[in-house]
Design a binder for these strands. Structure first.
Lengths: 411, 411
DNA sequence: CTTAGTTTGTTCAATCAACGGACAAAGATT
DNA sequence: AATCTTTGTCCGTTGATTGAACAAACTAAG
């Protein structure tokens, strides 16, 4: 029912405030934290002591000011980490990030989802998670949780992928399966839509740092959307919000993979681009071609001034901009982040996108929405998964048990 | 910077929890509140006492259970009220609602915005506010604040209407003007977009009670959108979110009042309906005709089975459904509320709307979005303005100064 | 080198909110 | 009349934040 507050949650909240402040604003003395946050120095001392016991902060350098006693800098401890994974149709990426915001390790594996099927893929995922967590422990690090991103309609609270069209999965209880395979690990596992996680990553350390309202677009076969509203992921009533790729924008449009007609992805996804710039059967449209190679080839043609390629990019950019203008009208975000191939080819697509936005957005004269190319075009979701874990620690530092205190840290 | 909690805000939060619980769940004994909220009986007694001193709750009947000592029921005091106003192109509506959720009074005035201009209109508004507040005080009631809804791009935090196309206003500092005209009243004045307020009203007491995610559409000359995400109004970076009427949905579309082409309102607004069902110059398309009369005439024709009218309603319903499906895909709301003429003609439009939605929404197979006709087709915004005020009292009961305690209540 | 001034961080008593237990009040049941 | 049940208050305890005092550590000026 209604959430009520007692003194324990008050303490928790202030622990969170101090830790979050250190993460966001950087290392500083206790006295500085106190004035920054409006807390009493004594309170901050007490809070910092508890955070230290939990292995979340440690003593840093001594900082001399102009006059007066130098301060003992408190800084975030890098031992507590989040593990994020991103499952794509042909690969899996994993990142370990620590609370300081630094990347501890990254892992990439190719795999054939079709071949492995859900069970085989999840077994492989579980094994990967297990080995990363084990390796981190040997390094004296503590994985506080795992965040997994998958493309499709995800019921995040239930840890279930309801419809994963691209993976060919349906009603897969990903979290339950992984928990079983890993033998009920002590760390929690969180499942989310890949675009949501990507948006979180861009906001945390990417090209949208500090933006409370942003939209991330995955440029892939389809177009996925991750929307952050006032700092929180837009989920909707059942967690299915953000299905921007299937907005009906072209009434006269062609058939979409979802069975409907005129979906946005049909005019701005990768197949649409290939249709524009190449005849069917031409080598560049060969499904077997590596994505990176295909994008490199498109860029080569564009830079040589190939008219059809340039026209095609302009058309796709206009298509992207058309849908983007709808979203910007609705959400009035600070930033629109282009992911996937939208980002890789971003410089070529940008003029058309910007043209659409400035022509179609109502509030354009009052406020401008920045359009940015993703800082991590194909790996943002994995990083976002790690950030979800780290955010849960920031929101409730008492989730990390005390005792990690003076474990030695570095090896 | 970061918000920090001390014991005062802890108290505030729990006062809020108790008051909100009473508003939402109805009158009940202290003991019942304690078990409902998980608070200690002693704590609840203390909280209730303070709420009583502030004139927010009062002692009700004695409630006998099966056995044991009867409980003293605590109920919400109706003396604290919110005043909401809604400014339309040709009228202003005002509602006073009390914390119990009951309507204390309503006021309607016709006015010619064009004729009065911003200054004259605001003077009239101020006078209306003053007289209502004065009248309420004589009734022993306390107006805790004023919420004003206007159509257009509103910067709510600044209390400014940036672009009010229908009113013909631009960069009007509504709140500042009213505060000056009213001589710095002690109650705060809040300005918001009318669709936002309407959404709040429907969620508070209308057809979307309890829905954390909903979309309100004003069916007017244009289409305004008010979106609630996880219980909070979607504002975006600058407060201009929700401009759904100017989504570009019809690429080949006709010119919109905003200067662009293919906006949603051009295919589903009132002018589009009139274009479909009547020739230019026909009496029903006469701008001088009263809206209510026009709607009645359309209904008459539809019920007589006039083919053109039925075709037109179907076309407009399809147009509404087209844009609605885009919104439902993006937001995954529990409820979509139709306001204005969408609501009045709702029964006639619904088949086409529902048809579009079931055909165009991706998650339709997993979760269904209810479509409802507004409970207050043309006055929801005024009610919503009052609810904003009441919500601010619920969020922080200490805003109401103590001393209203035993002032006598009834007149 | 000494002294004054500044800033940091800890200690300690005070304050305040919530809590648990005890208890009186008020009624139903036997 | 005795017992049981429930309500609401009282009171001492717990725990978190706070303000003031103070020692520590350093700079700047004389």
């Amino acid at each position: 029912m209604d959430v009520v507050v007692d003194q324990i949650s008050l303490r928790r909240y202030n622990l969170s405030a101090v830790l979050r402040h250190l993460c966001g604003a950087g290392p500083r003395s206790r006295a500085r934290i106190a004035t920054d946050l409006g807390l009493n120095k004594a309170t901050v001392s007490s809070l910092v002591a508890e955070l230290g016991e939990r292995g979340l902060v440690l003593a840093g350098d001594v900082e001399r000011g102009q006059v007066g006693r130098p301060g003992q800098v408190v800084e975030v401890d890098g031992r507590v980490c989040g593990l994020g994974l991103q499952l794509g149709v042909d690969h899996v990426a994993a990142y370990v990030l620590d609370l300081r915001g630094e990347m501890v390790s990254s892992h990439h594996r190719r795999l054939d989802i079709q071949d492995l099927g859900p069970a085989g893929t999840l077994a492989m995922l579980a094994e990967l998670i297990g080995s990363i967590v084990g390796g981190a422990a040997q390094d004296g690090r503590h994985i506080a949780g795992v965040g997994v991103g998958v493309p499709g309609l995800v019921e995040s609270a239930a840890g279930s992928l309801r419809i994963g069209a691209n993976l060919g999965w349906r009603d897969t209880r990903v979290v339950d399966e992984l928990v079983t395979l890993l033998g009920n690990p002590e760390y929690p596992i969180h499942l989310d839509n890949d675009a949501n996680l990507a948006a979180i990553a861009e906001r945390a350390t990417g090209c949208a740092v500090g933006a409370g309202n942003l939209i991330y677009l995955t440029g892939d076969v389809g177009i996925g959307g991750g929307v952050i509203v006032d700092g929180r992921v837009l989920r909707g009533a059942d967690g299915f919000a953000g299905e921007v790729g299937h907005m009906t924008l072209a009434g006269d449009g062609r058939l979409c993979g979802c069975g409907r007609k005129g979906c946005w992805e049909t005019v701005a996804g990768m197949p649409a681009l290939l249709r524009e710039i190449a005849d069917p059967g031409s080598p560049i449209a060969d499904p077997a071609m590596e994505l990176q190679e295909r994008l490199a080839e498109i860029r080569r043609r564009a830079e040589l001034g190939d008219a059809r390629t340039l026209r095609g990019l302009d058309a796709i950019g206009t298509g992207i901009g058309l849908g983007a203008s709808v979203l910007v009208n609705i959400f009035n975000p600070q930033v629109l982040v282009l992911g996937g191939f939208f980002s890789v080819l971003g410089d070529l697509l940008m003029p058309a996108i910007q043209g659409q936005l400035s022509g179609q957005v109502v509030s354009e004269s009052l406020s401008q929405c920045r359009v940015e190319r993703s800082a991590f075009p194909f790996t943002a979701a994995a990083r976002g998964g790690a950030h979800v874990v780290l955010e849960s620690v920031l929101a409730d530092p008492t989730r990390v048990p005390p005792g990690l205190a003076r474990a030695g840290g570095s090896r």
